[in-house]
């Protein structure tokens, strides 16, 4: 379920220190999130595309990922052109297509795709365990990182439990439909999932205690500290500065 198609690779981006990548992703995303002018958004899109390029990711797969998440954005294209107000470009029966709505929808589309591409290029190019270790070294709260890694570890186990329960109800002739019986069955499946998850949590915790667990995960990861990281940081900073310059450039 949680496959990591972009995590392995040997590109420039893959070889960067994960801590630098996480920080760059956070800062860059916030910079892109606050700009509205089209030249700035264009530069952001170009910068994000070059990150994808530098990471050597399969364009088809990246495009597929983006397509899946553009559903919410599509909603804005359906609604905003008719409701945002302002100058009417084209009359479509009783509905006027308004310029302001088109502009807003276009801004949202560019912005969200630019941010998501940077997110894929910078954070999906490391394994999730590495991300956890990087967060640990970046001084995110210890309990939070521990919770994150533990949740990730157990999603696969819980998913197998879920599939097991699903097979069991199918063998007993369950078929989903819009009925109270169906909802009740799903509710019991979910309840059973929690019961089994908590029983497992109990056993896992006892096993961890037996092995001397004292409330934290130790990260043994040693990250690359070559000059490459600083070059990369400089490039991202330059891109962010360029985007902000185009946004706040006096007309």
């Amino acid at each position: 379920m949680l496959d990591e198609p972009f995590a392995s690779g040997n590109s420039v981006i893959h070889r960067l220190d994960p801590r630098f990548r996480v920080m760059a992703a956070i800062v860059y995303s916030f910079v892109v999130a606050i700009v509205y002018r089209f030249p700035a958004l264009g530069l952001a899109l170009a910068a994000s595309l070059s990150m994808i390029g530098l990471a050597g990711l399969n364009p088809g797969r990246v495009f597929y990922r983006l397509l899946l998440v553009n559903g919410f954005v599509a909603l804005f294209w359906v609604v905003l052109p008719f409701t945002a107000g302002g100058e009417i470009l084209y009359q479509l029966g009783p509905l006027g297509i308004q310029k302001r709505g088109i502009v807003l929808a276009a801004q949202i589309t560019l912005k969200s795709n630019a941010i998501l591409m940077a997110l894929i290029a910078l954070t999906a190019t490391m394994s999730f365990a590495t991300l956890g270790h990087a967060m640990n070294q970046l001084k995110f709260p210890e309990k939070l990182v521990y919770l994150l890694l533990l949740t990730y570890r157990y999603i696969f186990v819980i998913e197998q439990e879920y599939k097991k329960i699903l097979r069991a109800i199918k063998i007993r002739g369950f078929s989903p439909g819009t009925s109270l019986h169906c909802y009740k069955t799903y509710a019991y499946v979910i309840g059973m999932l929690f019961v089994r998850a908590s029983a497992r949590a109990e056993r896992v915790y006892q096993a961890m205690r037996c092995r001397g667990f004292a409330g934290k995960f130790y990260s043994l990861a040693e990250f690359d500290s070559s000059r490459r990281n600083y070059v990369f940081t400089a490039l991202v900073t330059l891109a962010a500065a360029g985007i902000l310059y185009l946004e706040y450039l006096p007309k």
């Binding site: 521990y146 919770l147 570890r153 998913e159 979910i190 949590a201 915790y205």
Partner: peptide, 16 residues
């Protein structure tokens, strides 16, 4: 002591 339980329940919610 409750973190393993919270984590595994969070995993269960993710799946559910």
């Amino acid at each position: 002591d409750r973190i393993p339980k919270t984590g595994i329940l969070a995993a269960a919610f993710f799946v559910a």
